[in-house]
Each structure stands twice: as structure tokens, then as C-alpha cells.
Design a protein around this nucleic acid. Structure first.
Lengths: 204, 204
DNA sequence: CACATAAGGTACGCAACGTACCGTACCTTA
DNA sequence: TAAGGTACGGTACGTTGCGTACCTTATGTG
């Protein structure tokens, strides 16, 4: 009861492959939550996962890659889809619920830390939800679908909406994510949609 | 000719106080430009300033504070003022010219690095232009002045503009600063103003 | 049952931070 | 002008954390 490691066999029970890998990523995720990125150490992850640094470096070349992998593992696996509620505002709120909520758990400090260590490498490829390609990636396509649906209902005129405006809600959310320490409030999200996005796209 | 240090007196010529301090900050600024924040070391700064780490730590407690001081020193000293050209769009472009241009020299990597080391302390107090208080600080007041002038000309209705919209151009600029590696293009700035800000505030 | 494979474990080299210590130049003040 | 305090120059050190080397020990596969 005082040592989880030995709950199966007093000796042996050595973990391998996938099992060990998941244990390490889990440990990394927990350390990230408790210590934050700056105070995160490879040693700390290894100890928590009841293994040693060697096992970590056999799989990932550095701290940033481990953390990125841990984050990836803890993001929802379901692909983002375009809501179609019959109302643009509702669609946007639902999209944010599924897109933004999971990102809340990461925290600005972690993102900044990753960015420093990668200093320009393709973190984009690693965490596209946080730093998407300029084109907007998958989220851009979803936004277009939502707006096309709204256009059919006469809510918007898609050809009058600049590209920049299409990614605006997501960009503003990410800005909040990067510059505040608290989770982004519901009030902020509704503000982005009601005070900025909708006035820009709605036909007047 | 092979040692700048000795160009005045073969012996002595020891710098003190303000002179030394400025030399250190200058060295820090140059190192920052050449090595970037991640590769910046206290030793490197000391060597470039032709002094030693002790002299640095006598003045600043850590790397982040030195870098912040160096940045501060290299920002324009003139206080930001509200342009009044007689046209809202021109005012905004002029404001960005004086507000945004100096920040270009800093670079995303440096800001991220500072944010990691401060992880929530009041970097805001240190670099208010980059991370302003929630209220928007001085820039908010300037924006209001610009908009009041525009209101007198009938361009906008200030009481219909949400707070969030007032800080929107600056926020979007900062988002660009934080998420791109190249300097923010003129096209981006005009896009922010023409595609987003002006449509939101102009009376229709 | 032998053997390749991968885990456990320890120790190490390295870089950078931040501190301690001491000798020495400079400035101030009497 | 001589004394004494202050701050700089310089070096050495303790510490932490990264990433690597090397060996030992399970495991499971043919």
C-alpha cells in the first residue's frame, strides 16, 4: 500500500514498449501540471514514472518533444467538426466549446516554454491547434463551412469577408491564451463573438 | 590595436557606475540581437562588456531583468501621443508607426523567453508596451482620444464601441508579434485597420 | 535454452547560473 | 595628501539540469 511499483510482483514486472511509454507521458503530463514547464525536469518525469532518464531519451531527444507528446496524448482524439445548429452564433459558441476548451488545460507558460526551445522550428507541425499555419489549417476549413451554412440562411455574404476575419476568433482566443494566466473566461469568448466577429460578418 | 580595453590607459581606466552600467546594457542588447534570448548567457554579456559576471549581478538579480533593462534602454524615450490628422484611418496608421515599429526589434523569441522566466510576475510593469494591463494602460487612453476626435467629425459613435474593440488593433498586432518570426508586415497592419478595426467602429 | 533486445541504474561530462572571496583602482573627505 | 570606504576586476567554486556512456538485469522469441 505504500509503493505502487510493487503491487504486482515484489520483483520484476518490468514495463516495456507501449506500457512504459504511456507511463512516461502520463508522468510528464502530471509534472507539467504541478511544476509548470520551467520547473519541469527530465529527472522529475523519470522518477514519477518510476523509471530513469535513459528510458526517456531512448524515445524523445529532448524535453520539448516529450512535453509536446504528452500534450498531444491528452488532447481529445476526435477530429474537429463544423457544428450546424441553424444559427451562426450558436455554431460559433459550439465550435469554441470543442476547440478552445481542451487548450485551456495547457497554460501560457508551457506554450512559451515550448516556443523558446523550438525558437522557430516547426512547433507548428507539433501543436497545430495552438500555432496553426498561416492559412489556418483545418480550422479555417471548418470556419468556411460554418459561414457557408450561414450564407445559405442569408446571415452573411461570404465573398465580402476577408480571410483575416475568418481566423479572427481563433486568433483572439490564442492571444488570450498566450497573455493571461487564468483560463479564458466565458465572458471573453462571448465578447469575441458578439462584439467583434458577428458585427464584422453579419449583413447589415 | 589588438585590445580595445587598453586604448586609453595601458593600466587603469576602470569604469564605474553609470558608465559601466550602460556598457553592460549595450552588450546585453547586442548579444540579444546576435544570439537571441535562448543562447544569451551572463558570461557572454560580461565578456562583451569587457567586465565580469560579478558586475552584472551587483545590478540585476537575473538574466530576465538584465534583458528587460536592455530593452527598455533601447525603446524610444518619447511618450506616445495621439495623432490628430483629421482622419481616423490616418491617425491609426500614424499611431501604429510610432507604437509598433519600435517593438519590431525585439522579436518573438525574446518575449517568450522573458515570459517563461517571469511566468506570471509582473513583466507587465517591466514591459507595459508588450503586455499591457487588462485596462490597456496608456495606449487605451490614446485610443480613446483618437476616437473622440473621430466622433467630433462624425466618423464614429464612441458609446457604441465596446472596450474590447478599442484595444483590438494593439492586441492583434501583439498577437502577430508573438506568433511570427518575421517582422510584422505593413500589409498586416493595414489589414488589421481596414478589414477589422474601421468596419467595426465606423458609423454605417 | 541461447541470445537479441530493451529496461534499470549509476556515473559522468558539460554548460550556465549565481555566489564567494580577494586584491586593486578610484573617489571622497578630512 | 593621506586614509579609508566603495565598487570593479578576476577567479574559483557549489549547484542544477541536460544529455550520454556503460554496465547489469529482465523478458520474450526462435
Amino acid at each position: 500500500m505504500d509503493d505502487i511499483k510493487q503491487e504486482n510482483q515484489p520483483k520484476g514486472g518490468r514495463r516495456r514498449g507501449e506500457v512504459l511509454e504511456q507511463a512516461i507521458l502520463q508522468a510528464a503530463w502530471e509534472e507539467l501540471g504541478e511544476a509548470g514547464y520551467a520547473r519541469l525536469t527530465m529527472e522529475g518525469i523519470a522518477v514519477r514514472a518510476q523509471t530513469n532518464k535513459t528510458a526517456l531519451y531512448r524515445r524523445w531527444p529532448n524535453k520539448a518533444k516529450i512535453v509536446a507528446a504528452a500534450i498531444k496524448k491528452h488532447m481529445p482524439k476526435t477530429a474537429l467538426a463544423a457544428p450546424d445548429s441553424g444559427d451562426l452564433r450558436t455554431d460559433m459558441l459550439q465550435l469554441f466549446e470543442s476547440f478552445a476548451r481542451p487548450l485551456q488545460g495547457i497554460g501560457a507558460e508551457t506554450i512559451h516554454g515550448l516556443l523558446v526551445e523550438y525558437h522557430g522550428d516547426n512547433l507548428i507541425a507539433l501543436l497545430p491547434k495552438i500555432l496553426p499555419p498561416k492559412s489556418g489549417g483545418k480550422l479555417n476549413a471548418i470556419m468556411r463551412t460554418i459561414l457557408e451554412n450561414a450564407e445559405k440562411r442569408g446571415e452573411v455574404r461570404l465573398d465580402r469577408i476577408p480571410d483575416r476575419v475568418i481566423m479572427l476568433p481563433a486568433d483572439l482566443f490564442r492571444y488570450e491564451l498566450l497573455t493571461t494566466h487564468e483560463p479564458v473566461s466565458d465572458e471573453t469568448i462571448t465578447g469575441i463573438i458578439d462584439d467583434i466577429f458577428l458585427p464584422l460578418v453579419r449583413i447589415r
